[in-house]
Computed example of a mutant assay.
Amino acid sequence: MRHQTAFIAATGTALPGEPVDNTTLGAALHVSDEWIDVFVGTRTRHFARDLATGEIRDTLADLCAEAGASALARSGLEAGDLGFLVLATATPDRLLPTTAAQVADRLGLDQLPVYQLQAGCSGALQAVELGQALLGAGAGAGLVIGGDVTHRHLDLRADAARLPTQELVNYVLFGDGAGAAVLTAEPTGDAVALRGLVHRFAGLGREPGQLVDWYGVGDRASDRPILAEDYKAIEEHVPAMAVELLWDVLGLAGWDPGDVDHLLPPQLSRRMTERITERLRLPDAREVSCVTDTGNTGNALPLLQIDRLLHGMARGERAVALAVESSKWIKTGLALEKV
Rank of each mutant, 00 (worst) to 15 (best):
D105Q: 15
H151T: 14
V198N: 07
I276M: 09
W329P: 10
L135H: 15
A161Q: 13
A48V: 06
D213S: 14
L96H: 07
V31L: 00
Y231H: 12
D293F: 00
G333S: 12
I36T: 05
A14Y: 05
L60R: 00
A127I: 08
P16E: 01
Q4S: 11
A300R: 04
A101Y: 10
A69T: 07
P283H: 15
A48I: 04
T42G: 13
E337M: 06
R286F: 00
L211K: 15
P19V: 15
T53W: 10
A181N: 01
P19Y: 08
A228L: 11
T150H: 14
A69G: 15
E236I: 11
R281L: 00
V86R: 11
L173R: 11
G108F: 02
L263S: 11
Y171H: 15
S75P: 03
T98A: 12
M313F: 02
I276K: 06
L117S: 03
T188P: 00
A27M: 07
A119C: 14
G120Y: 02
L301F: 02
R106C: 02
L63I: 00
D176V: 09
T165P: 00
T13F: 07
L309C: 12
R286M: 06
D21P: 06
Q132Y: 04
I226Q: 10
D248C: 09
D307V: 06
N170S: 07
R270V: 14
D230S: 13
N170P: 04
D62S: 06
A185E: 06
Q111E: 08
V38I: 02
A119F: 04
L263V: 05
L72R: 08
L301Y: 05
F47H: 08
Q4L: 03
G298M: 05
T98L: 11
G298H: 01
V192E: 01
L204T: 13
L204C: 07
G254C: 13
L51E: 08
R152V: 14
P19C: 13
V114S: 06
Q118Y: 12
T99Q: 05
V212K: 03
F47M: 03
V149D: 03
G76R: 01
L263R: 11
D93K: 01
P164H: 10
S289Q: 08
E317H: 03
Y171L: 10
E66I: 05
G177N: 06
G179E: 07
R275P: 09
A48K: 00
K328S: 15
R281K: 15
G138D: 11
V128L: 05
F84A: 06
T273F: 02
G136D: 03
L163F: 03
G136F: 06
G312E: 06
V128W: 03
W247G: 08
I276H: 09
A61C: 05
